[in-house]
Design a protein around this nucleic acid. Structure first.
Lengths: 231, 231
DNA sequence: CTCGTTTAACTTGCATTCATTTTAAACCCT
DNA sequence: AGGGTTTAAAATGAATGCAAGTTAAACGAG
């Protein structure tokens, strides 16, 4: 019999802070002070500092001259993350094509139908959920643990950014056919084709994100202008 | 003017341990005890523990039930790392093709000639050095900071593994023409072709590594058998 | 009111100390 | 000698204490 050792405090604090950052209870750019957090959580500063080091290595917080702040991704950062995703998800689907069973594939086709429904109903949260499911499934079917680890880190950062700057960017329904194209390539057991389609899909996604971002910034600038003139 | 704050101890310890692991002064599987290291470095345990958390997050050490050990990669792990490399380096060369200047390209061609010389002279350390230079250059020309970060982490782990299990696996000279093919594609400014060739190159590398590994294991098993019979 | 100085609070980094658990060695009894 | 118990050493986890530096507020002189 194995007796489980309880999870150490620094690990619990790490998870708690990580979640708080991803759920925006702690906002990007916000400063983190070990003593303050230790006080809030009623623990000593030691474990809090250890948690900081983990978050720092993960990229969720920055440490510049001893000043700890929640990571604030720039557009450049997000584009770089997308480029990395292109590489990693292409490899994912390449190997997933080798390993996925017919049942697993059918499941994804089914989920795709649900996504279509959700798009028609303009149920955005559901669309996002299903879209995430699509990508995460394929990554997990790659049977590559490291790929999964890297992708989960990246997803955190992209997720953080999206929720930070604007609630969601409204993607059109074009991605449905792209998803279908990827599944079709898997069905035909053509890993390279599947990878190619995944690449294009994510590049498209990236470009839409970029456009939406710039549009958003423009609007913001306009608002600033109006504000200035009325002052 | 900026006055630089001195580097904190935990950071120095992190770097020191990291290097020690990569240079095999600390061997894979070896247990790390914070109090012992603190004693050796004549510091307190606090900063050592913070360094541990960074190394842990980076994947260089494992933490199972509070027992900290240097990461021992399995063959599966290394193959997974190679698969990840395929994705990341393909993306690297894709973007490097956009950004590399003629001078930078010429420099790599020149380095390739040197590699050929080194291969002829069977100067293995030089070959390895130049090979690493080739790949790292392309990653850096991608102008993607995150890509560079991920690749440096991965390189550490692969490096660790190679040096651990056997000193070096002896790759044939075939990779020279593959490198040349990649550079040619960059010269023609064909990002997709360059990416494709990089993929194939790394997959080839991976397969050779695998073969070499299994051969090595076989020999080891034989030696074990002989040992048993003579006991 | 503004600029500069003083000073108090805060923050970080590191060391020391303590409690608990784990490991290993010594010991004893049969 | 073998097996089990006792006990001492070591290791982890966490709290507290302290020094040095930074920030910011209070204060006062011009």
């Amino acid at each position: 019999m194995q007796v489980k050792r309880e999870i150490p405090l620094y690990e619990q604090i790490y998870i708690k802070l990580r979640d708080s950052i991803l759920h925006e209870e702690i906002k990007p750019g916000e400063r983190l002070v070990d003593s303050r957090i230790a006080g809030q959580l009623k623990v000593s500063r030691g474990p809090v500092r250890e948690a900081f080091r983990k978050l720092e290595q993960e990229g969720l917080i920055t440490n510049s001259e001893g000043i700890i702040e929640v990571y604030v991704p720039s557009l450049q950062d997000v584009l770089e993350l997308y480029q990395v995703r292109v590489g990693l998800e292409a490899v994912s689907v390449y190997w997933a094509t080798h390993y996925m069973t017919k049942e697993q594939l059918d499941e994804l086709y089914k989920s795709l139908l649900e996504t279509e429904k959700a798009v028609k109903l303009k149920n955005l949260p559901e669309v996002i959920k299903l879209n995430t499911y699509f990508h995460e499934s394929i990554v997990s079917y790659s049977k590559n643990k490291r790929l999964q680890l890297l992708m989960s880190n990246i997803r955190s950062l992209v997720f953080l950014y999206r929720n930070t700057i604007f609630n969601q960017y409204n993607r059109d329904h074009y991605f449905l056919s792209e998803h279908r194209g990827i599944l079709d390539a898997i069905k035909e057991r053509e890993p390279s084709l599947a990878a190619k389609r995944m690449e294009l899909h994510i590049y498209n996604d990236m470009n839409h994100f970029k456009e939406y971002f710039l549009m958003h910034k423009e609007k913001e600038a306009e608002l600033q202008n109006i504000k200035k003139h009325t002052e």
